[in-house]
């Protein structure tokens, strides 16, 4: 074997070994790899292993006279079409919103003390969700928008303050 062959084989062996470690020591290693593995070359493919939890996102507006509108549910699941098996670009955005809601709920559940509430407002995902909801129409006189996340049984998991982007 030439020196270059050894280098390439070693590179592949190291990558595979690192991935094996990451796959089975995922929680312990994720703390270190989050900042180091910025290109996400290490992965633990846990396909559909996580507990299935579905959440609903809705929003309402506060009008100029301080009245609030009805909650409007955000549709995140487009009607199933057979060609979606091959071509489904809308999934990208839906997946991002679902991922944000999962993360937000995870943080809320982790911090039941209430002190973290202020911190949640400072988080990127909170800002991203507010930003996403800006695409839904609101009247010019609207003073602010509020969103909430509910679980499958319609229990409120999180409700934001009224905000204006």
């Amino acid at each position: 074997m030439s020196i270059w062959e050894i280098i390439i084989v070693l590179t592949l062996a190291i990558w595979l070994t690192a991935n094996i470690c990451y796959s089975f020591l995922n929680k312990r290693m994720a703390h270190y790899t989050y900042r180091a593995d910025i290109f996400r070359l290490l992965s633990a493919f846990q396909l559909f292993s996580r507990k299935v939890e579905s959440f609903h996102l809705s929003y309402r507006d506060m009008l100029a006279d301080q009245a609030v509108t009805q909650w409007e549910r955000v549709p995140l699941n487009q009607q199933w079409k057979s060609y979606h098996a091959i071509w489904f670009p809308a999934r990208t955005v839906d997946t991002c919103v679902i991922s944000i809601m999962d993360d937000l709920v995870h943080i809320v559940k982790k911090d039941q003390s209430g002190f973290g509430r202020k911190k949640i407002k400072e988080r990127f995902i909170y800002h991203a969700l507010s930003h996403f909801l800006e695409r839904y129409p609101q009247s010019e006189s609207c003073l602010g928008r509020q969103f909430r996340i509910q679980d499958k049984e319609n229990n409120e998991v999180f409700i934001s303050d009224f905000y204006k982007e």
Partner: peptide, 13 residues
């Protein structure tokens, strides 16, 4: 490895 990880994760759930 990808299938094995997925299988083991399911067994942990």
């Amino acid at each position: 490895l990808s299938y094995l990880t997925a299988g083991v994760s399911k067994l942990k759930n």
